[in-house]
Simulated scan of single mutants.
Amino acid sequence: MKILLTGCAGFIGMQVSQHLLERGDEVIGVDNLNDYYDVSLKEARLARLTPYGNFDFHRLDIADGTALQALFAQEKPRRVVNLAAQAGVRYSLQHPQAYIDANIQGFLNILEGCRHHSVEHLVYASSSSVYGGNTQLPFSEHHAVDHPVSLYAATKKSNELMAHTYSHLFNLPTTGLRFFTVYGPWGRPDMALFKFTQAILAGSPIDVYNEGKMVRDFTYIDDIVEGTVRVLDKPATPNEGFQKEHPDPATSWAPYRLFNLGNQHPTPLMDYIHAIEVATGKKATLNFLPMQPGDVMATAANTEELEKYCQFTSYTPVEEGVKRFVDWYRTYTAAKG
């Protein structure tokens, strides 16, 4: 089928696109190739997609409503995967407007395109950051998420609310995926694994926040891709047993769903760093720092709902995923010279 996928030159977007292309779908890829991080990495990802005859790339910003609506009208996609966003918790502290433009205005433009062009299913990236100040682990889609601790998290929570509105008003099937700390080959340079690997191989110290007392549900990219595609293939439907007097945040009387997509094996940050040391064969020099604003102590995903819905559970061990990343990183940097 024809699928419009935004953020196709991004870490997750490139690999979801490749999966869809290889199974025979037609992918209409959208990306603005902004300079939030090294554009050459985005171009290298894009170069992996352009050889496919069923891939068509459009360089545009989803915040540009006129251009995006024209693309919807021209291509008439059956389904949409929205992975375009301004990412990063810490960046949002200094550049809040970028998050409103991409994550709020851009997402509204996506919803409008889906509404006016009879899209069968919209799948969009939410984030584990929506759980904010909640310390009840593991995080469940049935928990309230009303206390974000960063603007990035607030925009992702807003996306979920906006999607529900369109599911209710226009019967648009929408599914939000709360990704938990995605890592792996072709990852972002602003994320811990990339920065730590780069520094350790160079013999430079790495900054370790909250004195290393952090836990994350690190989720390997292949598991994220598989879960995303399985959900895309199963459009959201109303929860026939929904009780408005006891509303469930994860479902609705409208065709609306939310799922955690995580690894279910929370890993202490120091164990993650050790896995990088093993994979690189080098000892890290640690620069311990206090907790950063907008950060949380721990994340852990309850993924029972996703397992029931599409019979999928993440399974890649951190040690294996980190080794694959380090192998890719060495190859990628050697090729760049």
Score class of each variant (00 low, 15 high):
residue 162 M to D: 02
residue 286 L to S: 09
residue 228 T to L: 00
residue 163 A to L: 01
residue 270 M to I: 14
residue 310 C to T: 13
residue 31 D to C: 13
residue 77 P to V: 03
residue 261 L to V: 11
residue 96 P to V: 04
residue 264 Q to K: 15
residue 86 Q to W: 00
residue 141 E to T: 05
residue 122 L to I: 11
residue 226 E to N: 11
residue 227 G to L: 07
residue 297 M to Y: 12
residue 285 T to A: 13
residue 82 N to I: 13
residue 2 K to G: 00
residue 276 I to Q: 08
residue 178 R to W: 08
residue 325 F to R: 06
residue 284 A to C: 12
residue 171 N to M: 05
residue 330 R to Y: 05
residue 304 E to L: 02
residue 80 V to Q: 05
residue 106 G to M: 01
residue 173 P to K: 05
residue 101 D to A: 12
residue 124 Y to S: 07
residue 223 D to H: 03
residue 130 V to A: 05
residue 321 G to V: 06
residue 153 A to E: 00
residue 57 F to V: 11
residue 332 Y to L: 05
residue 244 K to F: 12
residue 96 P to D: 12
residue 224 I to K: 01
residue 204 S to I: 10
residue 268 P to L: 14
residue 89 V to E: 00
residue 234 K to W: 00
residue 258 L to F: 05
residue 50 T to C: 10
residue 195 K to V: 10
residue 333 T to F: 07
residue 274 H to M: 15
residue 83 L to M: 12
residue 151 L to Y: 03
residue 328 W to Q: 09
residue 144 A to R: 12
residue 79 R to I: 00
residue 52 Y to M: 08
residue 249 P to V: 06
residue 328 W to D: 03
residue 215 V to R: 04
residue 48 R to N: 05
residue 102 A to V: 06
residue 295 D to W: 12
residue 15 Q to W: 07
residue 159 N to V: 03
residue 328 W to C: 07
residue 284 A to R: 14
residue 296 V to D: 01
residue 96 P to F: 03
residue 9 A to C: 14
residue 324 R to M: 08
residue 205 P to C: 14
residue 41 L to I: 11
residue 185 P to Q: 14
residue 226 E to Q: 11
residue 132 G to Y: 05
residue 138 P to S: 09
residue 263 N to E: 14
residue 92 S to L: 09
residue 36 Y to S: 11
residue 18 Q to V: 08
residue 13 G to Y: 02
residue 207 D to L: 09
residue 289 L to C: 15
residue 45 R to S: 09
residue 250 A to L: 15
residue 190 D to K: 14
residue 198 Q to F: 01
residue 319 E to C: 07
residue 307 E to P: 00
residue 69 Q to C: 03
residue 60 L to D: 04
residue 193 L to R: 07
residue 261 L to Y: 08
residue 117 H to L: 06
residue 300 A to L: 08
residue 31 D to R: 11
residue 17 S to F: 09
residue 37 Y to D: 14
residue 160 E to I: 05
residue 34 N to Q: 11
residue 94 Q to D: 04
residue 300 A to Q: 13
residue 15 Q to A: 09
residue 149 V to F: 11
residue 181 T to L: 02
residue 89 V to S: 09
